[in-house]
Design a protein around this nucleic acid. Structure first.
Length: 212
DNA sequence: ATCCCGAGGG
DNA sequence: CCCTCTGGAT
């Protein structure tokens, strides 16, 4: 039973690798702080929308003390075109203050410390750790969750953390960082929520929920 | 379980 | 109009 699933995982890896050989993080950033900010802003929002506001945001707040001293209204104005912008603005400033006060101005590098920051949960911490520190993680977002369910790797009722654990058992650790990006690209551009490209999908035979 | 919450696509 | 987009806090 578990053996069969491992074979399936191998097929999935090979097929989506062919579709998206160079899947990668599509958020723009130029420092660890700015990466963390961009990931936080990307909640329930497309990366393209985030990239549209971060250029000006990063110019106004180059380092963490700038963010800690920011006027809330200024941050809000800069990210107003994003969903959930009031929460995100409040969290950004509070995150800056906490990093200055509790972490000597350095972005923390452990899961627990990252998740202690306002607006940073498991998913955001996972993305940050794998993207900046290259620590193997599989962040489960809406795309990964949907694709995993459709391909029969997880249940629809599974929490993101459960999906994450199942995927970590399925794929070897050295593939975690890239499989995360490949699943994202596959979900974003191919196995889309609304109009998935099922007719041309190389994984149609595996899929539990084909829409034809 | 519910709230937050704008842009883009269909 | 409706749904979706790399969620987190209460």
């Amino acid at each position: 039973m578990a053996k069969i699933t491992q074979e399936v995982a191998k097929t999935i890896y090979s097929e989506i690798s062919s579709l998206f050989p160079d899947a990668h993080c599509e958020l723009n950033y130029d420092s660890d702080l700015h990466l963390l900010m961009a990931i936080m802003l990307s909640a329930q929002t497309t990366d393209a929308s985030v990239n549209r506001v971060t250029k000006a945001l990063f110019e106004k707040y180059p380092i963490v003390t700038d963010l800690a001293n920011a006027e809330l209204a200024d941050i809000e104005a800069l990210i107003k075109t994003l969903g959930l912008y009031k929460n995100k603005a409040k969290n950004l400033k509070a995150l800056g203050i906490k990093i200055v006060n509790d972490f000597k101005g350095f972005i923390p590098s452990t899961q627990d410390d990252l998740e202690s920051l306002p607006g940073v949960g498991r998913k955001t911490a996972n993305v940050y750790l794998s993207e900046w520190h290259k620590i193997p993680r599989i962040a489960v977002d809406t795309h990964v969750k949907r694709v995993s369910y459709r391909l029969g790797l997880s249940l629809e009722s599974d929490t993101p953390e459960k999906v994450e654990i199942k995927l970590m058992k399925l794929f070897p650790e050295h593939q975690w960082i890239e499989i995360h990006h490949k699943l994202i690209f596959f979900g974003r551009y191919f196995c889309k929520a609304k109009k998935p490209e099922c007719k041309q999908c190389p994984l149609l035979k595996i899929c539990k929920k084909p829409i034809l």
